[in-house]
C-alpha cells in the first residue's frame, strides 16, 4: 500500500527534532503539525510574521489579525512572538530555521525543486518558497511520486520553472523516502512505503538514484 497524504505527513514529522524551529508549507506539509512525535518540542514559524504558531482557534477565539501563511485563522502560545516580514525572512534567509517541509511539483536528481509556476496556466507566485529553499538549513520535499498521467515527478531535470537549485535534502513521496547526506550529490532510496516493491519505484522514477 502506497502512503496516503496523512502517512506522508506522518513520515515527514519524523524529521523534526527536539528544539527545532520549523517552517511548514501549504498542503500536505501543514498536516505535519498533527503528527509531531511525543517528546519532541518544536516551534513553528509562520512566514507572515510569527514564531510559536498555536492550533486553530475555537470559534469564539477567532482574531482576523492572527493568521498563518495559508491565511487560516490560528492562535498564539505563551512562547509566541510577532515580527515584520523583513525580520521573518531574515530568519529564513539567514539560516536560523532548522527545517522546511514543503510541497513540490517536480524534483530533479540534483536536488532542484519546482513548485511555484506552470507557464501559461497557473499564475500564483512563489510567495516565500524561494527564500525558504535558499536559506533554511534542511529542506524536505513532500509530493506524489507521479502525476495524474502516471509520469514521474522525480526527474533528471525539472521541466517547470525552478524554485531553487540543488537545495533539497530529502524527498518523501507516496512510494518511499529518498535522501542524500551533506555533500552527497545523488539521492539514495532509504525507505519504501509498506507493500511497495523496489521494481515499482524504479519503473515510476525517471531520476537517476542510488538504488539500495
Amino acid at each position: 500500500m502506497a502512503w496516503t497524504r496523512d502517512d506522508m505527513a506522518k513520515r515527514a514529522a519524523q524529521e523534526l527534532k527536539d528544539g527545532f524551529y520549523v517552517n511548514l508549507g501549504i498542503g500536505i506539509p501543514t498536516l505535519v503539525a498533527n503528527h509531531i512525535p511525543d517528546g519532541v518540542d518544536v516551534t513553528l514559524q509562520s512566514e507572515n510574521g510569527m514564531l510559536g504558531m498555536g492550533p486553530f482557534p475555537y470559534p469564539d477565539e477567532v482574531d482576523p489579525d492572527l493568521i498563518n501563511a495559508g491565511k487560516q485563522t490560528i492562535t498564539e502560545l505563551r512562547r509566541s512572538s510577532y515580527f515584520n516580514s523583513a525580520e521573518s525572512f531574515a530568519m529564513i534567509r539567514g539560516g536560523h530555521i532548522d527545517i522546511s517541509i514543503l510541497g513540490a511539483m517536480e524534483i530533479s536528481q540534483g536536488g532542484d525543486i519546482a513548485n511555484w509556476m506552470i507557464p501559461g496556466k497557473m499564475v500564483k507566485g512563489m510567495g516565500g518558497a524561494m527564500d525558504l529553499v535558499a536559506g533554511v538549513k534542511r529542506c524536505v520535499a513532500v509530493m506524489d511520486h507521479t502525476n495524474r498521467a502516471g509520469k514521474s515527478k522525480f526527474l533528471p531535470e525539472c521541466t517547470l520553472p525552478l524554485t531553487g537549485r540543488n537545495c533539497i535534502d530529502m524527498v518523501i513521496t507516496d512510494l518511499g523516502v529518498f535522501s542524500r547526506g551533506e555533500g552527497e550529490t545523488r539521492f539514495r532510496v532509504t525507505e519504501l512505503a509498506p507493500g511497495v516493491e523496489i521494481d515499482e519505484v524504479k519503473a515510476k522514477t525517471e531520476a537517476d538514484l542510488v538504488w539500495g
Binding site: E47, F89, M126, G164, R165, N166
Partner: peptide, 29 residues
C-alpha cells in the same frame, strides 16, 4: 520572492539602493 520583496522595501526606506541575496539564484528571478 516574498523575502526579497520585504528586503527591497526595507532597503528602499533605509537609503540602501541595492543588496545581494541567494534567494532566486538559478531561477527566472
Amino acid at each position: 520572492p516574498q523575502g526579497t520583496l520585504a528586503e527591497r522595501i526595507r532597503a528602499g526606506g533605509a537609503g540602501i539602493p541595492g543588496f545581494y541575496t541567494k534567494t532566486g539564484v538559478g531561477t527566472v528571478i
